[in-house]
Amino acid sequence: MSANELTPSSEFLQLVLDNMNDPIFVKDRQHRWIALNDAFCTLLGRDRADLIGRGDPDIFPPDQVEVFWALDDQLFRSGETNENEESLTDDRGVVHTLWTRKYPVRDQTGAIVGLVGIISDITSLRRRIDEIHALEQTAAKRQAHIDAQQQVIDSMEVPVIAVWEGILLVPLVGELSPRRANLVLERLLSAIASAAARVVFLDVSGIPSVDESSASTLLSAVAAARLLGVKTEIVGVGPEIAQTLVQLGIDLGGVETHATLRDGLRAALVRFGVMAR
């Protein structure tokens, strides 16, 4: 058939539909199929003659028919196109996931006399999406587990110890990285609030070296505690740390320091009247 011989006949329209890969069907207002393309027949595993004039209840289980007809009726009432993800069981019992778009068919007066549906089989796409979703959930659970472990590690990494009523000790061990610096502040402020502390000792004897960053962390901790009405003192200041602070020109701002925790604790207890000088 040449291009000049093509006419808008029903046979020609059927030929056009049959050359489309997506399944296409046309229904009347009674939900009966009145036109189908080859792809739709292949999807259902039925001959065209077995489907024309029949309806969904002749092919599909009741739960699927209920969904199909509900969307049909919604279109018939509103006259608006709808689309939906649906499940369809073929003649072999295989369940397909479909994306179906339905459009109203109107007569010359504008009345809706039926609908045309175009189907895309997204079974493999839905499977991949579900797999990705499952992986994301697994990753989220794994991350939650990691976060919980990190919280335990953090509590061990920056412990806050109650050494006396109203007196807390925060031993600092290892390099004070930016993350650990923030952790020190968080743990310190939380402990002060929950323990009603009056004095906090920051023990720096476990810090291998002091630089401007770690010194800034100590000053920040002191300032934050002071805002909460808590006196913060630094213990464990040895000759090397003292010399480094002097060389860096770092002023601890009048913060009271002690060579050992024992010295600091004794001074605090004397101030509290628990111990004689």
Rank of each mutant, 00 (worst) to 15 (best):
P104A: 01
I122K: 03
W69K: 07
E136F: 13
D121A: 06
A144C: 01
S177I: 13
L183M: 08
V184M: 13
A148Y: 12
I59V: 08
E131G: 14
E85K: 00
Q151K: 11
L71F: 09
L185T: 02
R187F: 04
E85L: 00
L88G: 02
F68G: 03
T109C: 01
A181K: 12
P104D: 01
V158P: 06
V65K: 05
E165S: 09
I167K: 11
L115A: 08
V67E: 10
P171L: 15
A140G: 14
L98Q: 01
G93H: 00
E186W: 03
A144P: 00
T109E: 02
D73L: 04
V163C: 07
G114E: 05
S155W: 02
N182T: 08
D63P: 08
D91K: 04
T97F: 04
V170G: 10
R128G: 15
Q150T: 15
H133P: 10
N82I: 01
P57M: 10
G117F: 06
G79M: 03
I59D: 08
D58Y: 12
G174A: 12
L71I: 09
D107R: 00
S177T: 14
P62C: 08
G93L: 00
I129W: 13
V152A: 05
W99V: 07
G117P: 09
W99R: 05
F60P: 06
Q137Y: 15
V170S: 08
I118N: 06
V116N: 08
Q149Y: 15
N82R: 00
M156A: 02
I118K: 10
Q64T: 09
I129K: 13
E186C: 03
P171Q: 14
Q149R: 14
P159E: 00
P62D: 08
K141T: 13
